[in-house]
Simulated assay, not measured.
Amino acid sequence: MTSNGFLLILSGAGTTIEIAIQSIFFSLLIAIVVGTAMAMGGRVLRYTLKIYVELFRGTALIVQLFWMYFVLPQFGILLSEKVVAISAISLNYGAYGAVVVAGAINAIDKSQWEAAASLGLRRLPILRLVVLPQASVLLIKPLGVLYVQLVKATSLVSLITIADLTYRAYQLNQLSMHIVPIFGTVMLIYYAMTKCVAATAGILDHYVGTWRLASGARS
């Protein structure tokens, strides 16, 4: 593979990283908001959000991408390729993350709520100061696994003509037919990106766990 080919691959990797970072941010935001509402909201809100969660968990991400890219324009909704990619990935993985967040909140013993309420705290301060810090210990590992999957799923955006890592590799292969070095390099880059996400989750898990132990010792 030539130096120009390698630069083409790197440009695609940059696009993949950009989409992955933004998708992780927005999917995490969706997961926290929707998951918290599912755990604490009223019946109507819970059922409404459950429809969203089941829809996006129960259908393939590639179908969601195609819907936003090909179907929405039929209704006059025109989005750029990157907006479609980030929106579809964020909504898809946000739905999975919401289930994780809701489960972590529900796993906190009710006595924690009661003890905080006895001190005069209202519902939202209890959630922010007592429940979410404890739930975060249960969240980091499963969300880390989820976002490793998200990074790999970004390869699907090549199907809506985004010049990401996978698209550039295919493009370069069509020009040079150097299959092994091209896709070998791409595999290593994806591996490096997923290891970075997993390592970040591991570091966060370590520090949150250490903080919880220190907080428990002080109390």
Rank of each mutant, 00 (worst) to 15 (best):
G97R: 08
G97D: 04
G97S: 03
K82C: 00
Q149M: 13
Q134N: 09
V83G: 00
D109H: 15
V130T: 10
I89E: 06
A104S: 06
A98Q: 06
V130S: 07
K110T: 14
L78A: 15
G120V: 13
A104E: 05
A95Q: 07
D109E: 11
R122P: 04
A107L: 06
I140G: 01
I89L: 15
S87Q: 11
A115I: 05
L119Q: 13
L143A: 02
K82P: 00
Q112C: 08
L132D: 03
Y96I: 00
I105T: 02
Q134K: 13
I140C: 03
P125F: 15
K141R: 14
I140Q: 06
Q149N: 11
R123A: 09
Y96G: 00
S118H: 14
A116R: 11
Q112P: 04
A102E: 13
I89M: 12
W113V: 00
V83D: 02
A104P: 01
A88L: 04
A95R: 10
A98K: 11
L146M: 11
I108H: 08
L124G: 04
G144S: 08
Q149P: 00
L91R: 13
L78T: 14
E81S: 11
L129M: 12
P142R: 06
E114T: 08
A117D: 14
I105G: 01
P125Q: 11
V137S: 15
R123W: 15
V83W: 12
V100C: 00
L121A: 10
I140W: 06
V137P: 00
L78D: 13
V99W: 04
Y96R: 05
S87D: 06
S136E: 03
A117W: 10
A98T: 05
A115N: 13
L146P: 01
A117F: 13
G103L: 00
A117S: 12
K141G: 10
V131E: 03
V131D: 03
S136C: 07
I108A: 06
G103N: 10
R122I: 04
D109R: 12
Q149R: 09
I86G: 01
P142T: 04
V84H: 04
A104W: 02
Y93E: 09
R128F: 15
I77M: 15
P73R: 15
V130Q: 09
A107V: 09
L129R: 12
A88F: 07
G94Y: 10
L127V: 02
I89F: 06
Y96K: 07
